[in-house]
């Protein structure tokens, strides 16, 4: 309820700014929305509490690995935000991560491939998988959840074939610039996290200021209406899924880098749910039409903070699931309440 009251004034405070200049072309929402302020507040409170009650939460040795764990989830979450804004969903990212990771790992083991080659290979594989999803969803006009359920199984099948009944052993340290170790940091900031922030910033700008980004919101709000006003719905959808695929490729490199010298079949498993959780906790509406990548990044940080915090406090591991579950329900619940309030207004 408090969230409702907070979001209501937001458009009002935005309106005078727009109406004062008669030539204003469009009214933009606030750069940071109500839910994001709430998330920032929750994070600050959590970090202070963890700083007080654990010996080392607020030290570089603890924050740096936390940010390394956040990077792939938030990165893929950026793509997932695009998709969910269009009222779609992609549950195949776990299978896609698995396929990208095993292809890159096997290549690195058998050929002496440089860093840039490994990353390019991963992104290309991910992009192809994303395009497959995008084409089927945009041009086949089948519900995204069904298509991506299907492709998730197919990607897993292909990945298991590539694994070929064994783990990939002795993976070289080519990708260590994205890892948890000393080589994975520049001036104390994990490289993978920094790259994710840059990509998220560009995505944030695109969604807010570029016409293509605004079209995604229009499609999620009402796809038929968007089509009638001349938005090219199908290419826009394709781009959203392709982008997610490419980010899955890069994310798979981050995941490989933060793993061990052995890759097993558990890679990517359940990651689609972690990514969707970050997006939903970040305030993106699962009904489409509303959302932001800032929220997604904050959501990913919140989920990892809770997981790390539970371990560092010495609490039973399963409490992390409980807290993440509660966050998701609160986030979706407030979103639905807002939606209802908006309709009444």
């Amino acid at each position: 309820m408090t969230l409702d009251e907070r979001t209501k004034p937001a458009p009002q405070s935005g309106r005078p700014a727009g109406s004062s200049t008669a030539t204003a072309k469009r009214i933009l929402p606030l750069p940071v929305t109500g839910q994001e302020f709430v998330l920032i507040g929750v994070l600050i409170v959590l970090w202070i509490l963890l700083g007080i009650f654990t010996p080392a939460f607020l030290t570089p040795n603890s924050i740096q690995p936390l940010l390394v764990s956040v990077a792939p989830i938030a990165l893929i979450g950026v793509g997932m935000t695009f998709i969910i804004i269009t009222a779609g969903i992609d549950v195949s990212v776990g299978g896609a991560i698995m396929l990208c990771a095993v292809i890159v790992a096997k290549t690195m083991v058998s050929v002496d491939i440089p860093l840039i080659g490994a990353v390019a290979l991963a992104i290309v594989v991910g992009l192809v998988l994303g395009v497959v999803n995008g084409v089927l969803i945009a041009y086949g006009r089948v519900a995204a959840i069904i298509i991506t359920f299907g492709t998730a199984n197919i990607f897993q099948f292909l990945a298991l074939r590539v694994f070929g009944s064994s783990t990939v052993n002795g993976i070289p340290s080519t990708l260590e610039v994205f890892g948890r170790g000393e080589a994975g940091r520049t001036l104390g900031v994990p490289n993978s996290f920094a790259i994710m922030i840059v990509i998220a910033a560009v995505a944030w700008w695109y969604l807010r200021h570029a016409s293509g980004g605004r079209h995604l919101f229009a499609i999620g709000g009402n796809a038929n209406a968007a089509r009638l006003v001349g938005i090219k719905v199908q290419p826009r959808l394709l781009v959203a899924y392709a982008l997610t695929g490419a980010l899955v490729g890069l994310g798979a490199c981050f995941i490989l880098a933060s793993g061990t010298a052995t890759l097993d079949q558990s890679v990517g498993s359940g990651k689609e749910l972690q990514v969707i959780a970050a997006v939903v906790i970040g305030g993106t509406s699962i009904l489409g039409g509303r959302g932001s990548v800032i929220g997604t990044v904050l959501g990913a940080i919140l989920v990892q903070t809770v997981t790390s915090g539970v371990t560092q406090l010495g609490w039973p591991s399963q409490l992390a699931n409980l807290f993440v579950g509660i966050f998701i329900i609160i986030a979706v619940g407030t979103d639905l309440l807002r939606e209802r309030a908006r309709r009444k207004a």
Binding site: T262, T307, T311
Partner: peptide
């Protein structure tokens, strides 16, 4: 594996 690695890091902290 990734969760095990990150939990081990948390335990050391």
């Amino acid at each position: 594996q990734a969760a095990a690695t990150s939990m081990a890091t948390d335990l050391m902290n």
